[in-house]
Design a protein around this nucleic acid. Sequence first.
DNA 1: CAGTGGTCTAGACCACGCT
DNA 2: GCGTGGTCTAGACCACTGG
Lengths: 262, 262
Amino acid sequence: MAPDLMETHVERRTTIADRIADMLRADIESGKTPPGAALPSERELVAIHNVNRGTVRRSLGILVTEGLITSQAGSGYCVRANKLLDWYPGTFEHLGLRRDTPEAGSDAWAADVAAQDRTPSQDVDVSIETPPRLVADRLQTPDGDLVVLRRRLRLVDGVPYQIADSYYPRDVAEGTPIMTPGDTTIPGGLMAAAGHPQIRFRDEIGIRMPTHGEVYRLDLPAVTPVGEHVRVGYNRAGRPVRVIVTIVPGDRHRIIYEVSAE
Amino acid sequence: MAPDLMETHVERRTTIADRIADMLRADIESGKTPPGAALPSERELVAIHNVNRGTVRRSLGILVTEGLITSQAGSGYCVRANKLLDWYPGTFEHLGLRRDTPEAGSDAWAADVAAQDRTPSQDVDVSIETPPRLVADRLQTPDGDLVVLRRRLRLVDGVPYQIADSYYPRDVAEGTPIMTPGDTTIPGGLMAAAGHPQIRFRDEIGIRMPTHGEVYRLDLPAVTPVGEHVRVGYNRAGRPVRVIVTIVPGDRHRIIYEVSAE
DNA sequence: CAGTGGTCTAGACCACGCT
DNA sequence: GCGTGGTCTAGACCACTGG
């Protein structure tokens, strides 16, 4: 083992792997290893620090866990680079409605993205399915009832950024523009067009690790946490008419609410 | 290697460690290994499955990463149990204010916890420090200026649940109840008492992995993502008078916003 | 084809928990 | 003092990437 790694080994409660990770992290944060740049290979680090490959792998594992680097078998490790997008799921100014209002429909997101000088796009498809229990509970549909599912994958500059799946009771959606697949824009919003303008909504935000399916759809690097944003929308009669489940990778988003009391 | 582990090794793209993790996970999800129960020791699993200890450690590492189990050196692995707490950082009904209003002060949280039949408590201390840049930017204080920091660790049933650190410009806080350490309750709220009632706020929510310090203060199991909730509060003059940074472990919370348009 | 990360084996020593 | 998890070593084979 290299002497510089050995010296502090006894006095501190830090492992060799920790200290190698610290050095690599310092190089990344100082800009010496810029975003996109390749790191030394595992076997090079073995030679540099005179330690075992398992130890080097543990060091790199720490940085992968922190989301600083990614690995690709056959190629190597490189520094990650992701720009944060500000997402405004609900913005209210002075009791008036501004950006993503209950009425505004789905282009509020596209407008937000464009306002940040980036290019939005969406993959949309529509199907009829049995909803997960979380959704059935919130839509108050009987057990086993089918609902309309409008699946969206939202991209920014061609990179997947969000999964936004909307669930509607069949009587609300059928025969309305909601059933139209593709990235369509309806003035006034989908819900108003369906005769159920949204008057109130309730947002729940959970923080968790992604499922395998989400990792695949969003092309997530390992160990990136996601937000699960569940919006239940209600019509004038107080009936829940839509549930939107949005999966928001933590490395690409900042969620913003603006609220005013007068 | 045990034959049952070897059989599927070639046909599927799953590792031995994956399959041992799958078996352990199935036992946890079926309730065969209930919350709080101990898992077999690493060396027992080595004997059971006839594989190397490193492989067993990788299996257990998968479950630790998923947040299903915790490890304790000298003792063993056990199944985790954590109840979710609903947190309402901003709840507005019919344009009126309900729970945590800009005016209501810090006991809104305690009230929410109590409403869920659980017992809140807080550790509070106050100091004067140079704020992190994220806070200085939002308070619009000159570089290097000192601010008042009110540090809170919020506990539920004696278990750490949130870190809530509030930052105030010195002229706003000094000579007011804000400077009082300990878990005090001020009717009408701290900000109103200081002569700066909050009229508007802006919430930013980021999702990330915790820092080492947060892991320690919140006693987090490995690989638990957190939400970083930053609230900037403004007074009538539109001046930012408070920044609250709340660290919310994902395994203990669901964040809820309720918004109404009429 | 040479090099890379991913996985696995078979040992070892340490600090810490429990009893 | 025995068993536990935490760390480290020194090998090995595989699938994949890239020139």
